[in-house]
Write a protein that binds this DNA or RNA. Sequence first.
DNA 1: ACCTGAACACCGTTCAAGT
DNA 2: ACCTGAACACCGTTCAAGT
Lengths: 202, 202
Amino acid sequence: MAMTTRRYHHGDLRAALLTRAEQTLRDKGPGALSLRELARDLGVSHAAPSRHFKDKQALLDALALAGFERLGAAMTAALEEAEDSFADRLSAVLRAYVGFAIGNAALLDLMYSVKHDPAASEALIAATNRLATLAAELIVDGQRRGEVRDGPVESIALPVMAALHGFAALVVSGALPPELVEQGLDDTVALVLRGALQTNAV
Amino acid sequence: MAMTTRRYHHGDLRAALLTRAEQTLRDKGPGALSLRELARDLGVSHAAPSRHFKDKQALLDALALAGFERLGAAMTAALEEAEDSFADRLSAVLRAYVGFAIGNAALLDLMYSVKHDPAASEALIAATNRLATLAAELIVDGQRRGEVRDGPVESIALPVMAALHGFAALVVSGALPPELVEQGLDDTVALVLRGALQTNAV
DNA sequence: ACCTGAACACCGTTCAAGT
DNA sequence: ACCTGAACACCGTTCAAGT
């Protein structure tokens, strides 16, 4: 069973590259991410990754895509555990978003970074649309319960997404010191609530 | 006067590096930014930049810092031209922020990116604090006019900043298609206004 | 199908030496 | 003080060739 050393490759090089890449992204930042080092770590030649990702950018795109899937899953899970009231559901989603952001700072950066090529951008935009749908469902549900004011869903869902993402981005970039995160979280939920609720419902 | 070709260097290499770097950042994206190419473009040896920036990262940090100063200036200018009402002032600031984001997408990305070294981070955090102060003044002014509800300034200013930044970030990343920007801008202002105004003032 | 090895054209950084 | 030139240790990408 010691025959696994440097055969062709054990199993799924593509998956191995992705998980390893995310690890170094988390541990050493995006600047330290090199295809050659990845290949070295996995005991494979430096040209091997190109079989699975035509480009370094292609690997980054795949990483970003996986990130969106996990973020969506985290938000969905948070909603499932939350109470029924709109306030609780909004708070749960924001907390899930911020939690993901703190635990995956470099990845979130990558997910929203500008330099994706058009082909992959399509898939990434689809991924963000899934998040937007999630937000829209949150709003529609609130409207159904009579808690959120009426009107086009998007006119409420988009600003809510902006606030969620903006708060998480400020936390991740270090613009908001960690000790102010909890308070800021509550204040952001409160402002969004006031903005979204039925008039006089506060 | 044709003696300027490849002497030591005409004037201020540091400034020349910064402006040129920002140009290529805008035109060809962050991936295309190379110290050696910068040096080549400016007719200087590839080792020359190291006299002015110890590091590639140091150049990026300086670029980010300059970006924050210009963003702050744009927001301040927008406030000076705006009407006195809180609604107008908020709208003006958001428009300035988004305008800067669209015109300087890669730079904004860099400004809020995670990989700054601690030394420069200090200066960058100071720069974001100046933006936070600007937002706080906007709120305080609104409270003075009796338009914004009372309470700790930060509890309103931070969520407002989050919404501003988040909306701009969504636009820049392409998550929000360009044709929806105008509508989204209005909706975001509207939600933040409802969240920040005196109850029943809508 | 999947990978290797060599080759090519780049990088960033450092450091003696020049003016 | 400011810059050059050479050197070092890396990159990403490509492509014939191997199994």
